[in-house]
Design a protein around this nucleic acid. Sequence first.
DNA 1: CATCGATTTAAACAAGTGTTTAAAATGAGT
DNA 2: ACTCATTTTAAACACTTGTTTAAATCGATG
Lengths: 226, 226
Amino acid sequence: MATGVQPGQHTGARSTAKGGAADPKRARLLEAAAEIFAERGYYATTVRDISKRADANIAAVNYHFGDKLGLYTEVLRTNARSVGQDTIRPVLEQAAAPQDVLRKVIHALIQRMCGSGHASLPFRLMRHELMRPTPVLSQVVDEAMRPNYDRMRALVGALLGLPPDHETTRLCVHSIMGQVLFYPLASPLLARLWPQLKLTPQRLDRIADHIADFSVAYLQAARVRS
Amino acid sequence: MATGVQPGQHTGARSTAKGGAADPKRARLLEAAAEIFAERGYYATTVRDISKRADANIAAVNYHFGDKLGLYTEVLRTNARSVGQDTIRPVLEQAAAPQDVLRKVIHALIQRMCGSGHASLPFRLMRHELMRPTPVLSQVVDEAMRPNYDRMRALVGALLGLPPDHETTRLCVHSIMGQVLFYPLASPLLARLWPQLKLTPQRLDRIADHIADFSVAYLQAARVRS
DNA sequence: CATCGATTTAAACAAGTGTTTAAAATGAGT
DNA sequence: ACTCATTTTAAACACTTGTTTAAATCGATG
């Protein structure tokens, strides 16, 4: 104890010169961790795998982030912002007819949640967090999920002619979320029930169209005339 | 090697007397394993926990079932039959109006998948298998899921006036499954987005009603007149 | 060059996992 | 009572995990 070095919260002599890559080893660890966490989730990822991909020593994670969960927390906080504010929020807040906004957000969600490219990395992190929650889940929900859930309730409530906190409004939002989440969350099941299905971007667009049609049918029929 | 004892497939001198509980230690292991697997899933369950609950030695699992996966396979095969044939199939095959059958199967699925009682143990096993597939998943899908998926497609196809293997039919089945699975699979998310929600049986019935209404709205509107 | 804090390294640690081993106990058949 | 296959047991094994340690290296400052 009291060795003089404080792992995980060193005094912060960073940003010495040009404002760019300060402490590159730390950045490489974050980058490698994000990729592996997004691929396998928190529990199936080992600090040895992360260290190897980042060309760092096994102790690097503990030195720079305290422990594995500290590294994961930092990775997730960054990407939660990307999901919650940068990607979905602008789609939900654009000025357009509510039905069009709904269609677009369904398309965006399906493409990101089912995609495997670099742009969907934050969504894959969320996907794992949903399937196998970690102690960070509450924070993720607060930053990435609840704001969009609330906006979604406002949107669907407008379509229904009901307040955002009405039970029916919530259930409809869940019906839409459930349809969307089915494809990324139940994909191992789906792959065996319908082996021919290939989730190409075109196919994902057809699926998103269907989900929108399927949902709008109820929202229109149930609309309370104002 | 060649010790004369063949773990996992002993010669089967079982059923000596009354056809009831032959090899009670094996049965206790199966019972204990089913409970713990249903609660925590395959990977989070240790053979030590199972052995302790069954009042058996740590080596008992290996002796009677070869290895942990052998025990899990046997537990899952039993309960897959319960899910696939005993519980859902009769609901899907009853002679009634397709809409009523659909409503009833949605109710049954929601109650079982979200329940925590003894009757829903097989469904909790399936739930974990969906969220965290094991090498046994394919077998589970074949025995418990695909038959009902096919029956579901026939039912929804009849409501739509489309063949069971039409793309729209499949997408509609997925929309229904997604809405149902949302509550059990995304429950950690839901618990934080809507903390007041308590999944009582009455509430589950309201949810099932909503899912049925939500789905029927599209199925009726999209019906191809024959 | 010497100094000293920050970083990196190799090695070990402690805890947990599924599995195996060889001996002990069991119990029915002779 | 003895035999012998079956079952149970305690102990250890082999392996992986996250974490820690203490020494080595680095890098700017005096």
